[in-house]
Design a protein around this nucleic acid. Structure first.
Lengths: 192, 192
DNA sequence: TCGGATGTCTAGCGGTGCTAGGATCGCTGC
DNA sequence: GCAGCGATCCTAGCACCGCTAGACATCCGA
């Protein structure tokens, strides 16, 4: 049985290599540069090998997204834990979120801009995605009014962060005053 | 001179035909279905004709975006004008914005998701884009606190609307409670 | 009526995601 | 130790993409 185990191990290693390479290439030159040919060349295999691991490019994007969601959840929780008080926690969350988006634009795109074939807000949603949302919910629940649903508050807060992240990066919001916008957002959600 | 004028007129008509066809095709089947071949076939000309009007596909997207921005500005102003009081105006704006995004997803994508080669937040920004932002600013300024810049408030409000629009349409926010999210957003921005 | 400019098309380039089919490699049972 | 077989991988190719060079026809002005 050892042979089979070794093969599975090697397959898993190669799969991680594919994902790491795709992510690296995407961060360096954007997702449009991540073609199956280039990706295959970088991992030093032929194209069809990619299709023995993933159904297609979309599924590769999806896998990178799930990976990224886990990282984001960790980053958000770390930021919240390091802050004192509800208002500070929400501010820390906002900064951590936008920071993650700015530092990992390709991963962020995989998560929230591109089609990775993932289910959102359903039972089949990958755990890391639900967890990242939960990380937001934990601190937002503290500042939600008694008369509103914490989940809804979190959704709107998330949508605002997402808008800031994407519009800023695409140049639709001026880079200046980015900090001011973040502070204003936090004020509106954590004032009570 | 009459001949030349007629030719220019015909050229202008064909250019509008290209844009209308591109928009229609994009709304029907998404922008990925808008290929130069299909577009050329629909307008009953060969591909190279497209390139005598636009530098490339990107510029076609940009032109549709500018067209859409003018429409959106009109829709926003109409909504605001029909509402009584600052709070109601902001609510009307939010609904009109999200309604426009939901009814014209392809145009919305051209404006805010895709690369149409347009400048944003600069001096070269096409007038309709600036005007659509101005339409938001007019009503948001009324509810901005005295100690904050109305422009920044509008930017954050816009970002939140953009997040709601895109995350909802891509299935990342559940369709349920969409109305609740909108109301909550308005509450947070038009409470004073 | 003719020459030339203008406009349009055919054909093709290098790229994309994806896949069928053959070759080669490595494991397993004798 | 070796033969046969199954898993694994690659070559080659499909249909499509955005875009363009160059041939061709058409229409205008003299």
């Amino acid at each position: 049985m050892s042979v089979q185990e070794r093969k599975e191990r090697e397959r898993a290693i190669r799969e991680r290599l594919i994902l790491a390479t795709a992510r690296e290439l995407a961060e360096q030159q954007g997702w449009e540069a991540v073609t199956t040919r280039r990706l295959a060349e970088r991992i030093e295999y032929s194209q069809p090998v990619l299709y023995s691991h993933f159904r297609g490019k979309r599924e590769i994007i999806g896998a990178v997204a799930v990976e990224g969601a886990a990282e984001m959840a960790t980053a958000l929780r770390a930021a919240a834990a390091a802050a004192d008080g509800p208002r500070a926690r929400v501010a820390a969350l906002a900064h951590a979120y936008l920071d993650f988006a700015a530092r990992n634009p390709a991963v962020y795109d995989a998560m929230f801009q591109l089609d990775g074939g993932l289910d959102f807000a359903t039972a089949d949603t990958p755990e890391p995605l639900k967890d990242a949302f939960a990380a937001l919910l934990e601190s937002l629940g503290e500042v939600a009014g008694d008369d509103v649903h914490p989940g809804v508050v979190t959704e709107v807060f998330w949508a605002a962060l997402h808008g800031l992240a994407t519009l800023t990066r695409s140049g639709r919001l001026p880079p200046a005053f980015a900090e001011g916008r973040t502070e204003l957002l936090v004020d509106h959600f954590a004032r009570r």
